[in-house]
């Protein structure tokens, strides 16, 4: 009996993925590897968010969906082709704190670069620096890259694993990477490494 069960199980295990591999066109491995329910949830979520955005930009305009419908469909397809990120828990209070910090820094960054552009005697001495981030791969690291680009004086030029190549418009404008990382940890409810705020 036990022997039979075992055989059945191994039969199912071997035969189940086979039709997919034989009959379907080769897809990106990440799409194949995902369970069907997660895929469905991603599709529904993407459709709702994208359709809501389109509706917000063109409220009450039914004809706009001639463009909007296919656009949403293409965007959902793009979401499915891209690998899913590991689920993240975003803390709401952390989001408010991060948004406030980010907005202030964005304004400072813009004022700084505007002053440099308008000052006729200012000569730029840009440098590249390489920094290691301690943030985990996925959304925390992407947010770090994009936040760095909008922060005063820094621009993420390249990212390879945990190593960031940052372009500084002035060598003095080294960004406070540990502080930014801690704020992103706060945003994603990750454990803060350095207890000092």
């Amino acid at each position: 009996m036990a022997q039979k069960d075992k055989t059945e199980f191994s039969d199912i295990a071997q035969s189940a993925p086979a039709p997919d591999l034989l009959n379907e066109k080769p897809a990106l491995p990440i799409v194949v590897a995902q369970p069907r329910r997660t895929q469905l949830r991603r599709i529904v979520f993407a459709v709702i968010v994208l359709a809501a955005m389109w509706w917000m930009l063109n409220p009450g305009d039914l004809f706009s969906w001639i463009i909007g419908g296919p656009t949403v469909a293409l965007a959902v397809a793009a979401v499915l082709v891209l690998p899913a990120s590991a689920p993240q828990h975003v803390s709401l209070s952390g989001l408010v704190r991060f948004a406030f910090y980010f907005l202030t820094q964005t304004v400072l960054g813009a004022i700084d670069v505007a002053l440099r552009a308008f000052n006729p005697w200012h000569i730029l001495q840009p440098v590249f620096v390489t920094r290691e981030t301690s943030l985990p791969d996925g959304p925390p690291r992407w947010i770090l890259c994009n936040a760095l680009t909008l922060l005063p004086g820094s621009l993420t030029a390249d990212i390879k694993g945990a190593s960031l190549t940052i372009h500084l418009i002035d060598p003095d404008l080294e960004p406070d990477l540990p502080e930014l990382e801690n704020r992103i940890r706060d945003l994603f409810s990750l454990t803060t490494l350095d207890p000092s705020p």
Binding site: T106, G109, A110, I111, V113, L150, L155, H167, I169
Partner: peptide
Amino acid sequence: FSRLHAVTKADNL
């Protein structure tokens, strides 16, 4: 790279 600083930051604000 420096030009990107100008476009991303100043235009964003």
